[in-house]
Nucleic acid binder design. Structure first.
Lengths: 101, 101
DNA sequence: TTTATATGTTTAAATGTTTAAACATATAAT
DNA sequence: ATTATATGTTTAAACATTTAAACATATAAA
């Protein structure tokens, strides 16, 4: 196993963490339907509180899974999946070439 | 967003959970180097206790990320990554066809 | 049958995550 | 300036996860 494989694997941890939570998956699925949405709009369509939604949005913002468009006092969130998808593809490539026999 | 996309997304949660832990990643990387290994052999090469290793192995066994070969009193663990890799590929396909514009 | 070895399970403590209430900040409108 | 609205942050409680010690089980050898 090369160091690069280890690095790629480790680098995926924040993404795996972000995607392993049903509340965050719900937000992603909601944004895939209607984009962009503000924190309040997301909270209205959820059974979680606005601060809880804000917390989950922060986690996803930090790994660049979401992007923000500020409009006056409102922040509109939309998906930004390309980078994360590329990360997963890279992991799959390395696993297939180094771990599967 | 179709129901199938939601199902695939949800179905990946146990895998994301399993892969989001550094201790479990270490076990996977170790098995990618030397396979198969017993619980004791894995624990010897780790700084975690044997019961902790056993616990993490159980989590990975439950999602069929590992397979066991019993030899007398020992259980030899090896990777079984095909199914999980297919699951990730399926997720990527759906995200690319339904969520990326 | 008894003993030794390998493993899994239960339990309790430590740690981390998730949540909502309360508070703080910042922009827009009056 | 003051008020209203949208959002983020801090905090404390509830909840879940992780860990290692103690215990239980099961196979193999003497």
């Amino acid at each position: 196993m090369e160091q690069k494989a280890i690095d790629v694997f480790r680098a995926c941890i924040p993404l795996f963490n972000a995607l392993s939570d049903p509340a965050r998956q719900d937000i992603i699925l909601l944004l895939a339907e209607q984009e962009p949405l503000s924190v309040n709009e997301i909270a209205e369509q959820s059974n979680l509180s606005r601060p809880a939604i804000s917390h989950h949005l922060k986690i996803m913002r930090e790994i660049q899974l979401l992007q923000i468009e500020q409009k006056g006092t409102q922040r509109y969130y939309s998906l930004s999946l390309n980078q994360s998808v590329e990360q997963l593809k890279q992991l799959i490539d390395i696993v297939e070439s180094e771990c599967i026999f």
